[in-house]
Design a protein around this nucleic acid. Structure first.
Lengths: 189, 189
DNA sequence: GATTTCACTTGACAAATGTCACAAAGCTAT
DNA sequence: ATAGCTTTGTGACATTTGTCAAGTGAAATC
C-alpha cells in the first residue's frame, strides 16, 4: 500500500486532524502486515509504538496461569495500544492477532513530542484517552451491574460481528464467565 | 480561605503547571463548602464543573433499584469529576459527600478552551485522563482476576484509610460483593 | 476416506456467593 | 440513660457459577 492511499485512509479516520497534522504524524508511521497468531505487544514488556488497525482483528488479554482473560477486541479502523506502554511502563496485557491483518505503526515518543507543539494532536490523543476511559467504565458497570446473560446479550447487540471473529472461549473470558457457563447461557435462548 | 492560600495549595498539588497557567485556571475557580450527605453530581444530569477536593471525602456510585454500587472514592487533594459530564453528556454516576468537605470548583468549558491555547494545561488534563484509565484497568483486572478476599486485602493494603472513612456496605459494593459476604471475609481473617 | 484436532456442548457435583431473617453493636438525639 | 436508628455480623438456605469429565460435531491433516 503506497503512501498516498494510506494518507487517504488516515484522513478519513482521523477526521479531527488537519492535513498538515496528519503529515507530521505520518513521518513517524510505518505500514505493517501481521499473521494470525502473531503477538503485537507482550505482557511484561515495554513497547514504543501504538497502531492503527486498518484491516483485521486482535484480542488483548491477561495471562492467568494457563488461561487467558480477554480485556478487549479491536477490528477495522481502530486504534490499538495499551495505556501502560503509552506512559512508558511495561504492558500487563498481550495483544495477539485473530486473523491476518494490516496496520500502521506509530512511534509513541515523537508523536507525544508533536502533541507538545501541535495542539490538535494533543486534543486528538485526549479524545482517544477519553473514549478508552468511557469504554472501561461501561465494561466495569456491566460486570458489577448485569448478570452474565445480560452482558452476553448486550455484547452481541452492540457488536454482533464479534461472534464471527472471536471464539466463544475468548468471549466467555471477556464477559467474565467460564466457557461452560457461556455455553449454557446460549443454550437457554 | 483567601485566594493566596488557595493558590499555595494549588501550586503544590498541580506541580506540573507553571504559576502563570495556574493563574489562568484560577480565573474559573470558586471555593466551596459542602456537608455530609450533599450530592455534588447527580445521575442522569449534565454538570458543567469539575472539582479539586481539598479536605474531605466523597463516594461515586450507580443506583441499582434501591441499592447503591460504589465506583470510586476520593479523599484529600484528589480531582473529582465524571468522564461523561466532562465530555458534556449526562452523568451515570452520583457523587455524594461522606463527610463535611471543602473543595474548589472549576468550570469545565473555559478550562478546555484554555487547554486549546496553553499546552501545559492540555498535558495536565491528559495526565488526569491517563491516571483515571489506569485506575479503571486496575479495578477491572481485580474484578476478573482476583477472588473477593484478595480484592479486599488489596484494597486495605493500598488505601487503609478507607476503612475509617467509608462504611463496609459501600466497600462491599465497591468490591463487587454483598455486604454479608464482605462481613464473612473479614470474620475469617 | 480415515484420523486427528479443536471448539463447543452437556452432565454431575462442589464451591462460592446471594438472599432473607434476625441478632448484636454502635450512634444520635432527647 | 434510654429509645430509636443505622451499621455490622451470623445462620440457613437457594442460586449461580466453576470444575472436571465425557461426548459431539466440524474442520484440518494425512
Amino acid at each position: 500500500m503506497n503512501k498516498s492511499i494510506l494518507k487517504e485512509k488516515i484522513i478519513s479516520i482521523f477526521s479531527s486532524l488537519s492535513e498538515q497534522s496528519i503529515d507530521s504524524i505520518l513521518t513517524h508511521a510505518t505500514y505493517l502486515n501481521c499473521a494470525k497468531g502473531d503477538k503485537l505487544i507482550s505482557e511484561g514488556k515495554q513497547h514504543h509504538y501504538f497502531y492503527l488497525l486498518l484491516e483485521g482483528s486482535v484480542k488483548s488479554y491477561y495471562q492467568k496461569e494457563s488461561k487467558e482473560i480477554c480485556v478487549w477486541f479491536a477490528f477495522d479502523n481502530e486504534i490499538i495500544s495499551t495505556i501502560k506502554t503509552f506512559v512508558g511502563e511495561s504492558s500487563n496485557e498481550t495483544i495477539e492477532f485473530l486473523e491476518d491483518s494490516n496496520l500502521i505503526r506509530f512511534k509513541i515518543e515523537p508523536i507525544k513530542e508533536l502533541a507538545q507543539k501541535d495542539i490538535s494532536i494533543g486534543h486528538w490523543i485526549n479524545t482517544i484517552l477519553t473514549e478508552h476511559a468511557i469504554f472501561l467504565e461501561t465494561k466495569l458497570h456491566g460486570l458489577q451491574f448485569m448478570t452474565s446473560s445480560e452482558r452476553y446479550n448486550a455484547l452481541i447487540n452492540i457488536a454482533p460481528e464479534i461472534l464471527q471473529k472471536v471464539s466463544l472461549t475468548d468471549i466467555a473470558s471477556y464477559l467474565g464467565v467460564s466457557r461452560e457457563t457461556l455455553s449454557r447461557i446460549r443454550a437457554k435462548q
